[in-house]
Design a protein around this nucleic acid. Structure first.
Lengths: 342, 342
DNA sequence: CTGAAAGCGCTAACAT
DNA sequence: ATGTTAGCGCTTTCAG
């Protein structure tokens, strides 16, 4: 049993205490703590290390940050970190920054400009070494960061923003691929479930859907817009099957919405893919376990996270847009009926 | 078009610059920045405010933290932040700390003691004002935090840890309720899908399952242990239906696993709830959209997050365990077949 | 109401 | 190889 008595030793040892205990100056303590090579004699080093252990010394990151101008923290702002897509993104980011000895500050913007700005400002104030911004906004407000000289990289971008580092997939091409796959299955009326208009930006997935239809000489199918949520997808699915020209296939702009669409179709007594086929976008883990499994356009989240962090933290990282390929992951919902194994 | 030219003004203004510009001392700047009442004349205040605006001054949090000994950050360590349950938990925590002007550092332990310890240590070094620890470990290593005088509150605890603040639900009672519900449906053989043994701690959900069985005078059903993941649940489900005494109902220790179980049953051509009924634990959003919808024991995540943060940040917050009630959320998987609406 | 100044814990010249 | 020391930007007494 370890902690029967309460913590007592609230007094944190500083480098000075360590120095005194080991009989050296604070500089030497610094050298051993920071592993500066060829600076301190092995014997001295040992003494210092012991003093550190005995006194339970822990460097004060705030002081270090003040001195060095680097907090070794990065900030990540997403719209909604409980959304599986963003949760995965955040997870991957955390993984790579942790590897680099950095810590991750996470905040949610809810897609609201004012909130996004507030968080970005807050990050700037906290002297983070960089911020990763998964902004909905076409022209996010980066002035605070620029003024503070803090690097940013934009996530989930479809297009380059001049002079900015960003990463993203080709949403249009990904969507086009998905819809083209539906066309190959022989569908003639292919609907679209889209997210609600994100602050005036035209969603590239809609472009891709349209492009695939045009290429196939097919007419525009019905469009329903809803939130990027399960319940949004549910509502959209319900609306979709009420439409005059009910589609035989639907392209859905995110897995989350697709989960809701699936449920709406199921409740209406429609089978997927027999009555209506579905292809969605993102490739999040939950798409694998829905009923039926979702055929989806997968984004390489891990690779993007790694690239984003690298661009953010490397001195003079790329100031361009890095575009990643999507992958068509085939499961049952499109009508391909692969073997049921996972 | 805002940012055609690249950031130039990398020199951050300090309080000194502001003071000089406004013709006051740095102390006065501090007073206005921190809104110290009755300290500065309205006119002066205006001048300072203008100087701040003109120079784009932003307080340096590192310096402030060093001086004050408070970073206004809290650290949260979970096992896997992409797990919907933890993602939701993190989201709720972020919400409440943000409200309080704090920032949240998030890390993943993967349930590995060494990693957990490393992160906790790192948090201590970063001078966070408190850490929230969703530890798997029965006796997490809190010595670093104690030594640094940093408060901790434990999340997801079933039992009090003497002298420690913690929050959690009564896992045993929650599980008992779920299993009892299955008993009411007339099931005689009720299996259990449990998580893999978490570092030697006996999971209370197993206790609850057993208790319900005993109370009903029923024999112990089959037990399968697997990871707390969708694929873990899938494997467990597959194993479960191969067992000699195949159960007619299964209690699953987490929604995530239940999603996998559902899939395994579906692929085996078994209907839920007709052939096998399922009740699970957590009450995460995805449980609502599975096929069929999962009857589940819901944890009040938001309330727990709020209580945890409050206990963490309030001076002399409660050092006890706060236990929250679970709620049986009925959907189709148990056999109650409610109306299909969402 | 405003200013001067000490000091938080650390790093990195520079001196020894 | 080790010590001395000047700040990093901020808060906050204490004097004026």
């Amino acid at each position: 049993m370890a902690n029967s008595s309460l913590p007592v030793q609230h007094v944190q040892a500083t480098r000075k205490d360590v120095g005194r205990y080991a009989g050296v100056s604070t500089a030497v303590v610094s050298y051993v703590v920071n592993d500066v090579p060829n600076k301190v004699a092995p014997a001295t080093r040992e003494r210092v290390l012991e003093a550190i252990a005995v006194l339970g010394y822990r460097p004060n990151a705030a002081a270090r940050a003040l001195k060095l101008g680097s907090t070794e923290m990065i900030g990540l702002v997403v719209q909604e970190s409980s959304n599986p897509y963003f949760a995965k993104l955040a997870r991957e980011v955390e993984d790579v920054v942790d590897e680099l000895g950095y810590a991750m500050l996470l905040t949610n913007s809810g897609g609201v400009l004012a909130k996004e700005r507030r968080h970005v400002r807050n990050f700037a104030s906290r002297q983070v070494d960089g911020v990763l911004l998964a902004s909905t906004l076409a022209e996010p407000d980066l002035s605070e960061l620029d003024a503070a000289g803090i690097p940013v990289v934009l996530l989930d971008r479809a297009h380059p923003l001049p002079g900015r580092a960003s990463v993203g997939v080709d949403f249009a091409e990904g969507a086009r691929t998905g819809v083209a796959h539906l066309v190959e299955h022989g569908h003639q009326v292919i609907g679209l479930v889209m997210g609600t208009d994100s602050n005036g930006r035209y969603d590239e997935r809609e472009v891709g859907w349209l492009r695939a239809l045009r290429e196939a000489g097919l007419p525009e199918g019905p469009i329903v817009r809803s939130d990027f949520t399960r319940s949004g997808g549910y509502a959209a699915g319900a609306r979709m099957i009420e439409m005059a020209n009910r589609p035989t296939a639907i392209f859905v702009s995110s897995d989350m919405q697709a989960i809701g669409v699936l449920r709406a179709l199921h409740e209406a007594g429609l089978s997927v893919p027999e009555d209506i086929a579905v292809v969605s976008f993102d490739g999040s883990p939950e798409s694998e376990y829905s009923t039926p499994g979702l055929t989806t356009i997968k984004q390489p989240v891990q690779a993007m996270a790694a690239a984003a962090v690298k661009a953010l933290l490397s001195k003079d990282g790329p100031r361009e847009h890095q575009q990643f390929p999507t992958e068509l992951v085939i499961r049952r919902s499109c009508g391909c009926t692969p073997e049921p194994g996972i």
